[in-house]
């Protein structure tokens, strides 16, 4: 079974978010980058489990610059066999997805796994775009994935519940909570990661379709109004008359 896992970097979840150059760019100064949690905890770990049970290989792919190599090595330390980096800034989701699809087209993968979303741009776009470019089915927001030969059974989140679906390989899946448990890389994994192949490929000529023009921080909250714990009638009254939410 050949599996391709799309890995992106994201700022550590505790990062303070600030912008520079007149609020047009994210200020990476002092920000620690990690593997996007959905990609690492769910997509990558489930891919490794499937490989362990069925043989095959796990390739990780990132659209990014040399700065991303540290994050890629971390994903290799968790257990991926090899890495591919498309050497470019990921200009937008379309650009990123088309690069990954171009690579996937020349290598027959049974399943392409992405995270549910990146925790910086929260788009949930890249997986569906890859599926369309490859002309394969797409299962989004999967919380479970089992494979039997060329047939996979998945659970996906739908409004207010879950759906059990079946699909044949090849397909693309975006992975959410429930898929797998986080794995902490061990020393052996970290050592091995240093010598695993990391192939750098130049990008295809693709125009981005969107761009982030500027950013803003949300208006800061006014001070919290404290309510006497004995007096919940007052809280209900404020929620009704002042906040007008009940």
């Amino acid at each position: 079974m050949k599996l391709l896992v799309c890995i992106s970097k994201s700022p550590d979840t505790t990062s303070k978010i600030t912008f520079k150059e007149d609020n047009t760019k994210f200020d990476e100064n002092g920000v620690q980058f990690i593997v996007n949690p959905y990609d690492e905890w769910y997509a990558l770990v489930r891919a490794l489990e499937l490989k362990e049970a069925n043989n095959g290989s796990v390739t990780i792919i990132t659209v990014g610059t040399a700065v991303d190599d540290a994050v890629i090595r971390k994903a290799l330390a968790i257990g991926a066999d090899e890495a591919v980096r498309i050497n470019s800034e990921p200009h937008d989701a379309y650009f990123t997805a088309m690069q990954i699809a171009d690579y996937a087209k020349t290598n027959d993968f049974d399943i392409v796994l992405t995270g549910k979303e990146t925790i910086n741009y929260n788009g949930s776009q890249v997986g569906g775009m890859i599926a369309e470019a490859l002309g394969t089915p797409f299962v989004s927001l999967a919380s479970k994935l089992d494979v039997n030969g060329s047939t996979a059974t998945l659970e996906t989140e739908i409004v207010g519940g879950v759906e059990v679906v079946e699909v044949n390989t090849p397909f693309v899946v975006s992975c959410a909570k429930g898929m797998a448990e986080q794995r902490i890389p061990n020393m052996r994994g970290i050592m091995a990661a240093r010598t695993k192949p990391l192939n750098v490929i130049e990008p295809s000529a693709i125009e981005a379709l969107t761009s982030f023009e500027s950013y803003e921080l949300p208006p800061s909250k006014s001070a919290c109004k404290m309510i006497n714990p004995e007096n919940m009638e007052e809280l209900v009254d404020l929620l009704h008359n002042e906040a007008k939410v009940i």
Partner: peptide, 23 residues
């Protein structure tokens, strides 16, 4: 931007070569 928007929106963006703004 519900579960259908999240699966069909990106596909349609590629199909129509139309820029997508999610959410």
């Amino acid at each position: 931007h519900d579960f259908i928007g999240k699966s069909v929106g990106p596909r349609l963006s590629v199909r129509l070569k139309a820029g997508l703004v999610p959410g």
